[in-house]
């Protein structure tokens, strides 16, 4: 799998998916559009399985003593935990598990499955946070000049407005979701938005360091991860702000952004694997033979 073979279909999907949603809503009803949304969710899960295999390959580029090994181990752990909890969501979305409408009267096991296990997403996000922190430390450990600028702190402050806005619109948080919303989901989403803001803030720092490299294939890896982290945070914001106005639209926007998130992770993992071969190819020197193909 090469970045070139993934990039073009992925970019095409960014136009095809909104077009498919629009057409479905125009020619059918919003129920049909939500069905399309569920298919997109299934496709996103499948992409994440491929991402995991590529992340393992990216991790193998590093030996145990390299700082990159820890970063990619954390990324692999983040993806595994996320996939596990996506499996739970799939059973609820496709009605393999049917929770009762009122979770207060559900069995303790069902309550745990539906309500408590959603916080596993938060655990996976915290693993992503840890990966970003190790990346920042890696940049700093080089001793080269990688510094945040004043405007980065302004961007971070703006990003922390997202959880504030979400908190203000918290009454919207329980309105929409890929599965029927319950009264506990608003708390989870508020927590998720706070973790999302933390991820996005760290992404600002990584983005600055990547920019200071002035190009190169390593910067390309981290720029792509930054996009993934930002859209993940944006998906919660979309849900919080759009739910009241247009619930199906909010769900579609959330899923679309998660599709972008999965696609960016796929590209980032492939870019990491391709860091070295690209050197030889562009410098006119013979190619490095570090690929595991």
């Amino acid at each position: 799998m090469t970045s070139q073979s993934v990039r073009i279909p992925f970019i095409a999907s960014l136009f095809v998916i909104p077009a498919a949603f629009t057409v479905t809503i125009l020619v059918s009803d919003s129920q049909k559009a939500l069905e399309v949304n569920n298919y997109l969710f299934a496709a996103t899960v499948l992409v994440q399985i491929v991402v995991l295999s590529q992340a393992f390959a990216a991790r193998n580029v590093f030996s145990r003593v390299d700082p990159g090994h820890l970063t990619w181990t954390l990324i692999v752990a983040f993806l595994i935990v996320r996939l596990l909890v996506e499996g739970r969501l799939a059973t609820l979305t496709f009605k393999i598990v049917n929770p009762p409408p009122d979770l207060l009267h559900a069995s303790p096991l069902m309550f745990f499955y539906v309500v408590a296990l959603r916080y596993v997403y938060t655990i996976s996000d915290l693993l992503f946070v840890a990966a970003l922190i190790t990346t920042i430390r890696t940049y700093k450990s080089t001793g080269l000049k990688f510094e945040l600028l004043g405007r980065d702190y302004v961007y971070m402050a703006i990003l922390w407005a997202i959880p504030v806005v979400t908190f203000i619109f918290r009454s919207n948080l329980g309105l929409a979701g890929i599965i029927a919303a319950d009264q506990y989901i608003a708390t989870y989403r508020l927590v998720a938005v706070f973790v999302g803001a933390l991820i996005a803030s760290l992404c600002v720092a990584v983005r600055r360091y990547a920019l200071q490299m002035k190009g190169g294939s390593i910067a390309r890896v981290w720029n792509t991860v930054v996009v993934a982290g930002t859209v993940r945070a944006a998906s919660f914001l979309a849900l919080a702000t759009l739910s009241k106005v247009w619930a199906p639209g909010a769900r579609m926007m959330e899923q679309y952004l998660l599709w972008v998130f999965a696609g960016c992770w796929l590209l980032a993992a492939i870019y990491q694997r391709e860091v070295l071969p690209r050197t030889g190819a562009t410098s006119g020197l013979p190619r490095f033979s570090n690929r595991d193909e």
């Binding site: 001793g143 080269l144 000049k145 490299m213 190169g216 910067a219 860091v275 020197l285």
Partner: peptide
């Protein structure tokens, strides 16, 4: 520089060499 830039980027390649 020509060798390192495609991987490390223009600024990092230059800084690393200087360092």
């Amino acid at each position: 520089l020509r060798y390192l830039t495609p991987v490390l980027g223009e600024a990092t390649a230059e800084n690393m060499l200087k360092h």
